[in-house]
């Protein structure tokens, strides 16, 4: 183990993947070293080590980046494309939704799209309405895409490595605050399976399901409630789609209570999908209605004061848990 930032952990994953397989290439705005190796240095050093042909800085042309990555993927490469911020994904959604997600199906399985799209987002830094959105639910709504949201530096490494070697198009969502967070990361090969949730903390009284940056507070709340004698089971989804439904249902069947916490807007969000599945399967066994925490129905405001009010907090999470306990 070494203690590094999530950005460095992600960089290690790409570097090890490139060293392991010559078909792994990286492209995106400013990803090569002459342009700085990525705005958060996630691709730093890679063009120097592996050559300018393998790590290409591109113009600010999201459609062309995504289209070129899809083309390279169907030609048998494993491109790691960077769309600098998740809001810019809107510009490339045609290629992602109409092509990357569907070519396998529309070709009757003849053509794989082993593409990884890295993107960064997250509220909490006063980046305003066009640089903060979590739109993972849009993507998860598209059959054929895998959507991965890591929450720790070790997971940044292990999940990104798995995305790169997955034969389906994966969107890997990095958090702009978390990228600077430090944590223990395994040295050498570290792959975490996609589509599997992580039971971070076993518990008996209530299940809390989350992913991404809110996981930090979720874990703290679970610990402090544990000191009060409330046993909280914590699930980190890691992969949003395909959803690890079994892990969720097994846990809630045991605890009879569930709270879902995410950063994205609550309406029509991932939490709604999870709550629906819990109700479909466990309605008669629930001891309380499922609780959802997410951003209110508003764009992300610029003002730091306003921004704080729309995000989750340990207090809000605690209150939601207590509500299920009655």
């Amino acid at each position: 183990m070494i203690k590094v930032t999530a950005a460095e952990a992600a960089r290690m994953a790409i570097e090890e993947a490139m060293a392991a397989d010559p078909t792994v290439i990286a492209l995106g705005e400013e990803v090569a070293d002459p342009e700085g190796g990525g705005i958060r240095k996630v691709t730093k050093g890679l063009s120097t080590r592996f050559g300018a042909d393998r790590v290409k800085s591109t113009p600010i042309s999201e459609q062309a980046i995504m289209g070129a990555a899809v083309g390279a993927a169907i030609a048998g490469m494993r491109p790691v494309a960077e769309i600098m911020l998740m809001n810019f994904m809107t510009l490339a959604l045609d290629q992602l939704v109409n092509h990357a997600a569907k070519i396998r199906y529309m070709s009757g399985g003849a053509t794989s799209v082993p593409l990884t799209v890295r993107t960064m987002t997250g509220a909490g830094r006063s980046l305003g309405g066009q640089h903060s959105d979590m739109v993972e639910a849009w993507l998860a709504h598209t059959p054929g895409l895998k959507v991965v949201v890591p929450s720790t530096p070790a997971d940044y490494k292990g999940l990104l490595y798995s995305c790169i070697f997955d034969d389906d198009p994966c969107v890997f969502v990095e958090n702009s605050i978390h990228l600077s967070a430090r944590g223990d990361v395994p040295v050498g090969l570290h792959a975490i399976p996609l589509g599997k949730a992580h039971i971070v903390r076993p518990g008996a009284d209530v299940t809390i399901i989350s992913y991404g940056r809110p996981m930090d507070d979720v874990k703290k709340v679970a610990e402090s409630l544990g000191e009060e004698g409330i046993s909280v089971e914590v699930i980190d989804l890691r992969t949003i789609s395909p959803l690890d439904e079994a892990a969720i249902l097994n846990s809630v069947a045991k605890t009879k209570r569930a709270v879902i916490v995410h950063e994205a807007v609550r309406s029509f969000g991932v939490g709604a999908e999870i709550a629906a599945r819990i109700h479909e399967h466990l309605f008669g066994e629930l001891a309380a209605p499922v609780q959802r925490l997410g951003m209110p129905y508003t764009p992300v405001p610029f003002s730091s004061a306003l921004e704080k009010t729309i995000l989750w907090s340990p207090e809000k999470i605690t209150a939601a848990i207590r509500k299920t306990l009655g």
Binding site: L27, Q63, G67, G71, I74, A75, G76, D94
Partner: peptide, 18 residues
């Protein structure tokens, strides 16, 4: 999708170059 194959074709050529 009208025009989208142009971006993908560009990517096919990108892999040829590499």
């Amino acid at each position: 999708i009208v025009g989208a194959q142009v971006s993908i074709g560009t990517g096919l050529a990108f892999s040829n170059l590499y």
